[in-house]
Structure formats: structure tokens, C-alpha cells
């Protein structure tokens, strides 16, 4: 079967300083994949490299068998929430419509159909009543939902999400997970940068564990082991001990939130 995303010997360097070395991956379609690793491991850089936003020093990226540029319409992106200025004078609706820009020609305005799609996406994340609100007047969780709705409006087959659960309340986290699972059921592929080991295991079908190099990639049940985590997180033993103990106590960490 064709891979949704294929990376071959991908190396990324900022100012000649490599941050990711020789990543080899082939992610099949229809999987929900978590990207985990310590701070500075290059988790965000990995998805930015796929999108052409990080300087690729070597190797290549293929999205559904073609270069990213050829298939960019098939990729949806949720950036980190802090990456934009939330005082920007736009409404929730304006931001979600930006997800449609990839489907529009130069200087073409969003059509009635684009608005309709944007409304449906807002409805999916339960943000339709706030469509006309300026984005600064939203809570962190609501802002994250807006970003998710914008990515949904891209109507893509592969979604790349950078820390969508940071700073959101439990209700939003549950709502986002429900939307992501629905996407997976439709056969979409999701790559989600995630920092919380405690629930990584219950959320994702597969995990990519990185620390500048690829440590492990595979089905969650196979790679979420103390040995692999140790290899990924290195010396941070206390953290690992906690996780190991929690795993020993409760094999399934579904309800474990900090």
C-alpha cells in the first residue's frame, strides 16, 4: 500500500547545526501517529521539514508518493498556538476560512461553498456560536479548536499537528481527540506532536520516538516500552521511573491524566 508519508534519510540543520539526523520513516494511511521525545528532540522540526518550513540539509520527503509541493493540498497543518499573534484583527470565521486558501486561486475570494465548509468545521469543534468573535477574546482551548477547525477546512488526507493539546482544558482535549478519531475512521492519516507520555499510549495507534535521531517507530504496543523510552529520553530517569511505575500499576493508562 502507498505510504501517506515517507521520509528518507532526512537531515535538518539550522545555521549548519543539525537538529535531525537521517530520519527514515514510512507511515501508512489511516493511522493516528504520535511524535514523542524530550524537549529539543526535533519533534516540531520533523513536521516543519515535511511542510518545507525547516531547512532540509539532506534526504527527501514524499507525501502520498509525490513531493510535498505537488501534494500540498492533501496536507493539513495545525501549528503551535503561540506561533501567531492572537491580537490580530480577524474573527474566528476569518481564521477558519484561511484553511480554504489552498483551494483558491491567486486573488480569488472565498466562495459561499468555502464559507459553508468553514461553518461545518466550526460546528465539528463546537465553535460555531463564536464564529464572529475576534480571536483574542477566546480561551486557550477555544483558540486551539479554531486551529483544528482551520485544518479540517483544508479537507486534507494527511494532518500534521504541532502540540494541539498544550494549554487546553480537559473538555477541549476530549473534544479534539474525538475529532481526530473521527478523521482516522475516515481513513485520514494524522501525525501529532505530543509531549505527555502519560496518555500517549492510549491516544495513538503508532508512535514515532525521536531524539534528534529516530529511536523507534512502530505500533504503540510494541514501542512504548521502558527500554525504548529510556533510549529516547536518556538521563531523565525520574520521569521514566514515574512512567514505568504508572505502567506497572495500570497497563492501560486511559484515565491517567497527570
Amino acid at each position: 500500500m502507498e505510504s501517506a508519508l515517507e521520509l528518507h534519510d532526512l537531515t535538518v540543520a539550522y545555521h549548519k547545526k543539525p537538529v535531525l539526523y537521517g530520519i527514515d520513516l514510512a507511515v501508512p494511511s489511516g493511522k493516528m501517529v504520535g511524535i514523542v521525545g524530550p524537549n529539543g528532540a526535533g519533534k516540531s522540526t520533523l513536521i516543519k521539514a515535511v511542510l518545507g518550513l525547516a531547512p532540509v540539509a539532506g534526504g527527501w520527503v514524499k507525501v502520498f508518493g509525490k513531493s510535498y509541493r505537488e501534494n500540498c493540498k492533501r496536507v493539513g497543518y495545525v501549528p503551535q498556538r503561540e506561533s501567531v499573534d492572537w491580537d490580530f484583527p480577524v474573527s474566528v470565521m476569518d481564521v477558519v476560512l484561511m484553511g480554504r486558501y489552498g483551494h483558491l486561486r491567486l486573488a480569488q475570494r472565498p466562495t459561499a461553498r468555502d464559507r459553508e465548509i468553514a461553518m461545518q468545521c466550526l460546528d465539528k469543534v463546537q465553535m460555531l456560536p463564536l464564529a464572529n468573535r475576534q480571536i483574542g477574546n477566546l480561551s486557550g482551548g477555544q483558540q486551539q479548536r479554531v486551529f483544528l477547525a482551520r485544518a479540517l477546512a483544508q479537507e486534507s488526507d494527511l494532518y500534521l499537528m504541532d502540540e494541539p493539546f498544550v494549554g487546553v482544558d480537559a473538555a477541549t482535549e476530549a473534544a479534539i481527540i474525538a475529532v481526530l478519531q473521527e478523521l482516522r475512521e475516515q481513513g485520514k492519516t494524522l501525525l501529532v506532536v505530543h509531549h505527555d507520555l502519560a496518555n500517549a499510549r492510549s491516544y495513538f495507534d503508532q508512535l514515532i520516538l525521536i531524539n534528534m535521531r529516530l529511536v523507534a517507530y512502530g505500533d504503540t504496543v510494541e514501542v512504548f516500552t521502558p527500554e525504548v523510552l529510556q533510549a529516547t529520553y536518556g538521563g531523565r530517569l525520574t520521569l521514566l521511573d514515574d512512567v514505568a511505575q504508572a505502567m506497572a500499576r495500570r497497563p492501560a493508562l486511559d484515565s491517567d491524566r497527570r
Binding site: K48, L51, G52, L53, R69, C72, V75, Y77, P79, S83, V84, D85, F88, V90, D94, V95, M98, Y101, G102, L104, L106, A107, Q108, R109, P110, R150
Partner: peptide, 21 residues
């Protein structure tokens, strides 16, 4: 004419580039 392009490249250059702008 270019309202949408100017808006997105100002608000979220990352997404703009990801969309091929």
C-alpha cells in the same frame, strides 16, 4: 485584490508557506 494573500502571509506565514504561497 490580494486581501487574502496579504492577510494570511501577515497572520500565519508558516501556513502560508505550507499552502505554497
Amino acid at each position: 485584490f490580494f486581501y487574502k494573500e496579504l492577510l494570511l502571509t501577515s497572520f500565519d506565514p508558516g501556513l502560508a508557506r505550507a499552502l505554497g504561497m
